[in-house]
């Protein structure tokens, strides 16, 4: 005989009689059996708030770093003008502005208008105006849209690899020449393509110097 068996045998003798059960039934029926309103758990609310606060604190710090081409393209329109102008040495006495490669036509007004405003007949005589440059990082190619003299639209694909081969340092250029003088140039820095628009035509040496500055 094991202890377990003895214990069970002992306990099996302990049971409620029918009378006791009836009495209990009556007592229970008389008791307040109104359902207890379960307390609302605030845990999900706390969890939601915690996640929300953490996301609000952490995401703004992470997003600009994790963003790749898109934020850079967007920032380019606002940021680089001053920086690039400062990069031009004073002795060159050459001013230029940079239009972003973001593709906005507003950032690149027609050459004729700008030339007229600036009173620069040479600029007005340029064969075309670059209106849009789209850097397609996924396809590794650059689309350049420009407007010709006859107001026709040309689309030229220039693979980025070709541009880079033309300039081992990584800065790429596509100068637009007129009578041996450069009026427009394209330069790449940190994955961005910039359109350099010179207020006055510059000789090729100046273009090279500017590209050097940009590389730095």
């Amino acid at each position: 005989m094991t202890l377990k068996n003895n214990y069970r045998k002992l306990m099996d003798e302990v049971s409620l009689s029918e009378d006791q059960k009836e009495q209990m039934l009556a007592n229970i029926m008389r008791a307040d059996l109104q359902p207890v309103r379960r307390k609302r758990s605030w845990k999900p609310v706390y969890a939601f708030l915690t996640i929300g606060v953490c996301a609000g604190l952490v995401l703004p710090r992470i997003m600009p770093r994790s963003g790749s081409a898109a934020p850079m393209m967007a920032d380019a329109a606002a940021e680089p003008e001053e920086k690039m102008i400062n990069a031009v040495p004073a002795e060159q006495n050459t001013s230029f502005s940079i239009a972003s490669a973001s593709g906005s036509e507003d950032s690149l007004p027609a050459a004729e208008e700008r030339a007229e405003d600036a009173g620069d007949p040479l600029a007005a005589a340029l064969p075309f105006t670059v209106t849009q440059i789209t850097q397609d990082y996924h396809e590794e190619r650059t689309l350049i849209t420009y407007e010709g003299e006859e107001n026709s639209l040309y689309l030229t694909e220039i693979p980025e690899a070709v541009w880079k081969r033309s300039n081992d340092s990584g800065a790429i250029s596509l100068p637009c020449e007129k009578d041996g003088m450069i009026r427009y140039g394209l330069a790449e820095k940190d994955g961005m393509v910039y359109v350099l628009e010179f207020a006055e035509p510059v000789p090729p040496e100046t273009m090279e110097l500017l590209l050097e500055l940009i590389r730095e």
């Binding site: 306990m11 302990v14 049971s15 409620l16 059960k21 209990m24 039934l25 229970i28 029926m29 059996l33």
Partner: peptide, 18 residues
């Protein structure tokens, strides 16, 4: 309710009591 209570008492009453 009464049926339910009876079932509970008959099924589990002794175990709870012990």
């Amino acid at each position: 309710q009464e049926i339910r209570i009876r079932r509970l008492l008959n099924t589990y009453g002794d175990s709870i009591f012990r």
